[in-house]
Simulated scan of single mutants.
Amino acid sequence: MDGHTTDLVSSRLHGRHGVLRDQHKTVILTTHNHKIMALANNMIVLEARHIIETDSPTTLLKGDGYISKLGFEANYDEAEQTSRTPDSLLAVESTWASKDREGESTTALTDLRRKNGCLSVYKYCIANAGYSSVTLHVVFIILWVFSTEFSPVVVKWWSEANAIKPNQDMRMWLGVYAILGVLGTLGATAAAWFALVSIISYTGIHLHSDPLQQPSYLQSCIQHWLNFMLDLLVTVLAIVVVGTTVTWHDRSSAGSVAQTSVLSWSSISAKR
């Protein structure tokens, strides 16, 4: 997950009114993320398989140990939490329970509204993908769909006109049908280009700019590039083997064996 999504999920799970905290679940987290650390009630710092610090984030931040040097702020008020008596905790639990009951009446409405999505989310995604790229992608999609769906209508009009006056305006109908075919092909190709090259590239740069995720993205890119190069190499070898087998089929019978070996090498290389 990117940094924004990580913060959102961790806050809704472990935050002040998170799901797991409301249900009083005990959670053990192992993380290097400062924002997730700040959501904990108690922290344990390990070094060389030994515990060097253990306490609440607020207490550790006031000290001079490892946690105090990280420079983050505690998001959860542990002092308030630890000062509560059992009676006050029961009162808080009853308050949360009443809030849950009040929220049940709006659950159905919330679920219905979520089906329509959130306009701000769409604006955020489109802005990171690039307004011009998304606009051109939609335009070419419309061109592709129009050309594809309107071609049968043209054929129908052509058939009706041909039934009245056979073979009249043949060049016009063929030209219109050919133009629609070219426009449909152009629209589909351009839409795929903007989606796969432009939109995905911009989205990857702007939405996934977390430095912690860059090594995994680089590794994935290198892996896909190597797979692509292996596929090209195997294609060239397969063409050479098939061409040799077809050209000199009466001189050698090892073509099928060589072709099978090439395909087997391709599958083994892809797995490695």
Rank of each mutant, 00 (worst) to 15 (best):
V139M: 04
K99S: 10
N42H: 12
G130I: 06
R49G: 05
L112E: 14
E93Y: 14
A127P: 00
T54D: 10
N41I: 01
V92L: 15
I142G: 03
S83F: 00
K156V: 07
K156Y: 11
A74K: 00
N116H: 14
W144G: 01
E160M: 09
L46F: 06
L119Q: 12
E102I: 13
V153S: 12
V121Y: 12
E53H: 05
T135F: 06
M37C: 04
R101M: 10
R114M: 05
K69V: 02
I44S: 04
K99W: 09
E53W: 03
G175E: 02
L109D: 15
F150M: 10
S98P: 00
L112S: 13
I126T: 11
F150K: 05
I142C: 04
C125G: 02
K156A: 14
A48Q: 11
Y124F: 07
T135V: 07
W96L: 13
A108V: 14
E80H: 13
P57Q: 07
Y124D: 11
D77R: 12
V121Q: 14
E160L: 13
A127C: 10
D77L: 08
Y124V: 01
L70Q: 04
P86Q: 13
V154M: 11
L90G: 03
F72N: 09
T135G: 09
G65H: 10
M170A: 11
I51E: 05
P152E: 07
V145Q: 10
L89N: 11
G103H: 08
M172E: 04
V139T: 12
L61G: 00
K62R: 13
K99N: 09
V155S: 10
D77T: 04
A129Y: 09
G117Q: 03
L61V: 01
K115W: 03
P152V: 08
K165M: 12
E102F: 10
N42K: 15
L60C: 06
S159C: 08
A38Q: 08
S132M: 11
D87P: 03
A129T: 08
A108H: 14
I142L: 06
S94T: 12
V145W: 00
H137M: 03
K156D: 07
A40I: 09
K115P: 04
N41Q: 12
A97V: 01
C118H: 15
A48G: 07
S147Q: 04
E93T: 08
T148W: 08
L89C: 11
V121R: 14
G130P: 01
S147N: 03
L136E: 07
Y76S: 04
A127G: 06
A38C: 04
L39R: 08
C118Y: 14
V92S: 14
A40Q: 05
S151C: 03
G65P: 01
A161H: 05
W144H: 02
D55P: 02
Q168W: 08
G63N: 00
W96T: 03
A48N: 15
T82Y: 12
A108Y: 03
N41H: 14
S68R: 13
I51G: 00
K115G: 00
T85N: 01
